[in-house]
């Protein structure tokens, strides 16, 4: 029964990792940009939420109403003001600039909030659970997973059923021809980054409720998101959920064997997939 429990916990944890991955996957899909600062932006969102909850005294999930638009606005500004200038055939500038951004965000957070671990307090939600047979499943992990499914389903819908999604796919396919359709790619990229950081905001708040965080944990979140993307297969939105779940289950099973093995087991699962199925388990399927 312990093992079943570990698998359930891992699956639910995978929802959080899918949220880390979805934003990463979205911007890579639209503009072939890999944002090294992605993990730091997740942590940054958690700190934004912390400031809002402590100053307004509201629940962190309610604070999402503010955190999401704030992060989306930051994303749009970041893309228009900085990242658009780096996009081209050379992969070096965007990589190094987002790396610089990562260091800047980390140290700014350190300056403002110090290195002390923080946590978002969600009150009773943190300890609430429901009984399934002899197992107790936490409300928070369950809610996280449900939110992840909802976010990914909305992204999928937006991408394949709306005018915005059409524009995003057109720009992703062929930037020049998309411009001939009157699409300003600088704006479209801005929107894509805004969407990615809106998802990041949700991920950051859920992370902050689940565990304590400090300015240095961004790199690890980037890696988890990245692993979920690669395990799931590039260019597949639902794949990121599958990838997140596989990563989460690998980690909880690893932790079951030896607590020191939790993260390592996740990395090993990723490396095994990379060795056996380098295009991921669910490579791009057209919707």
């Amino acid at each position: 029964m312990d093992w079943v429990n570990a698998i359930i916990q891992g699956t639910l944890l995978g929802g959080l990792y899918a949220l880390f991955a979805a934003g990463l996957s979205l911007i890579f899909g639209v503009m072939r940009l890999v944002n090294i600062a992605h993990g730091d932006l997740i942590v940054f969102s958690a700190y934004v939420c912390l400031t809002i909850t402590t100053s307004l005294g509201i629940h962190p999930l309610v604070a999402l109403v503010l955190v999401v638009p704030i992060m989306a606005a930051i994303g749009y500004g970041l893309q228009r003001g900085l990242l658009n200038k780096t996009l081209g055939t050379d992969i070096l500038p965007p990589l190094l600039i987002t790396f610089g951004l990562s260091v800047i965000i980390q140290n700014t957070l350190l300056q403002v909030y110090t290195a002390d671990p923080q946590k978002l307090s969600a009150g009773d939600l943190e300890i609430a659970s429901i009984k399934v047979g002899s197992l107790a499943v936490g409300m928070l992990p369950l809610l996280t997973f449900a939110i992840a499914v909802a976010v990914i389903a909305s992204l999928q819908y937006m991408f394949y059923k709306t005018a915005l999604g059409r524009a995003l796919r057109a720009v992703s396919d062929n930037q020049e021809i998309a411009q001939l359709m009157g699409l300003d790619k600088r704006h479209i990229f801005g929107i894509a980054m805004a969407l990615a950081l809106a998802v990041t905001a949700v991920a950051g708040v859920l992370l902050g409720i689940r565990t304590s965080f400090d300015p240095s944990v961004g790199g690890g979140r980037l890696i988890f998101g990245f692993e979920a993307v690669i395990i799931g297969g590039l260019g597949n939105i639902w794949g990121t959920l599958a990838g997140g779940v596989i990563l989460g289950v690998a980690q909880t099973i690893g932790a079951k064997i030896d607590p020191g093995w939790q993260i390592l087991a996740g990395h090993i699962a990723f490396l095994v997939v990379l060795a056996v199925r380098p295009n991921g388990l669910f490579p791009r399927m057209s919707a």
Binding site: L33, V34, I36, L95, G220, I230, L264, H267, L271
Partner: peptide, 22 residues
Amino acid sequence: FRLRGAYFAIGTWVIAEVFRLS
């Protein structure tokens, strides 16, 4: 080397983490 471009970068980071944790 199975990862291209920027994903190669993060892949190398994972390797370093595997070394650290090991």
